[in-house]
Nucleic acid binder design. Structure first.
Length: 370
DNA sequence: TACCCCACAAGAGAGCATTC
DNA sequence: GAATGCTCTCTTGTGGGGTA
């Protein structure tokens, strides 16, 4: 089998070399289990959007851990082992980082099924179970790798590889988690600290998701302080506050509009660049709904508008189409304007709710709980 | 002509909820 | 405890259009 290579593969190779020296390459080529781990760890370098596959990896992990914990790699008596209890295995899976919400699927069916998909001609099923006693085993045939006349047990290496993978995934999340914790600490009554924190969240180099969440927190509270008067007839006019809604998680909002305002029906799109043409596709064919762009930039709104216009002229060339394109931009909100609006909120003595909103949205965005 | 980029669609993995 | 259906969303494949 041709081994797929990705950014975590060298780490797997390194762990194998440390454990088995010159035989490591042959073990990688021979062991379906190692190759499976290699496939399932490809998200290591792919950021938070990528699925981590912890379910199937942890099913292997807890069974191998159980195997090592009882020293079967030394005693060779695994064949006589009564098996591990489902409840213990699942509990252990949930104790592992990011495993809190894992369910039974991987242990019961999914891991085996997926393994079979990748290794059609492999005669061994990784997870063995006795449905009558609810006991589980890792298939030892996949742990003992024969190279020429020697047998190598890869149990320790399996654990080490998954541990290394967990560590990388943990680091990816850690920066954001730290941010959340800092927010919680300064939530109390320190306006200067809160402002500094807000500034750090809306800097040009801030994480895109954090920028979006912070923008939402600021704008929601800013608009909540404003109201309009409207109604079907002159006699029925009533006052209503402007309410900003987030339409979904940042990552779940592929191509969608980020915020919507009631009752005015304004659309808000958060973006990192002035390359906004994707929001106005087919602008020459149809009239488009106006959008307010929240742009992660220190440039003035005029400069940003100018940049967008230059781009539109380059792309559309026809002045009439360029005008229609530009007319679709209802407002441009840059970093200084966001900060200005936050200061207005702070002047009323209520910066706290902004932080609370940011915290709430952060928890939703990252499934992060206290 | 080959290559690249982009948008869209389909496939697939993972988690939630429900049921037995 | 285990199986299953559903939903969400990330990945991959595909085709059209633009460009060198």
């Amino acid at each position: 089998m041709v081994v797929m290579e990705h950014k975590f593969t060298p780490e797997i190779v390194r762990i194998l070399e440390d454990a088995f020296g010159c035989c490591s390459k042959a073990i990688f080529q021979t062991s379906e289990l190692i190759q499976y781990l290699n496939i399932k760890t490809k998200s290591a370098s792919r950021g938070s959007k990528s699925r981590a596959s912890f379910g199937n990896l942890y099913a292997i992990y807890v069974l191998v851990e159980d195997y090592l914990g009882k020293s079967f790699h030394k005693s060779g008596e695994y064949k006589e082992y009564e098996g591990a209890r489902f409840t213990d295995l699942l509990q252990r899976m949930r104790e592992l980082p990011f495993g809190g919400k894992l369910q039974n699927h991987a242990l019961n069916h999914r891991m085996n099924k997926e393994f079979e998909k990748y290794f059609k001609i492999c005669e061994f099923t990784p997870i063995l179970r006795d449905a009558t006693t609810n006991k589980y085993w890792i298939n030892e045939n996949l742990l003992n790798i024969e190279i020429i006349d020697e047998t190598f047990n890869i149990a320790n290496v399996v654990i080490e590889i998954i541990d290394a993978y967990i560590e990388i995934k943990r680091q990816t999340f850690e920066s954001f988690i730290t941010t959340c914790q800092e927010m919680q600490k300064i939530k109390s009554d320190n306006p200067t600290a809160i402002r500094q924190f807000i500034v750090s969240m809306i800097q040009p180099n801030a994480d895109a998701r954090i920028f979006e969440i912070a923008s939402f927190g600021i704008l929601k509270k800013y608009f909540a302080g404003q109201s309009i008067y409207w109604g079907w007839t002159l006699d029925e006019i009533s006052e209503e506050s402007l309410l900003l809604y987030k339409t979904g998680r940042c990552n779940a909002n592929d191509g969608g509009i980020d915020f919507v305002m009631r009752p005015l029906g304004r659309f808000f799109q958060v973006t990192e660049t002035t390359d906004v043409k994707k929001y106005f596709l087919d602008i020459d064919k149809v009239q488009r709904y106006p959008i307010t762009f929240v742009i992660k930039s220190m440039d003035s709104a005029d400069v940003l508008r100018e940049k967008i216009e230059q781009q539109a002229k380059r792309v559309f060339s026809v002045e009439k189409v360029v005008r229609r394109y530009m007319d679709c931009i209802e407002e441009i909100i840059n970093i200084p304007l966001l900060l200005e609006r936050f200061d207005e909120i702070a002047d009323t003595g209520k910066p706290g709710p902004v932080i609370e909103e940011i915290l709430l949205q952060s928890r939703v965005e990252f499934n992060y709980d206290d």
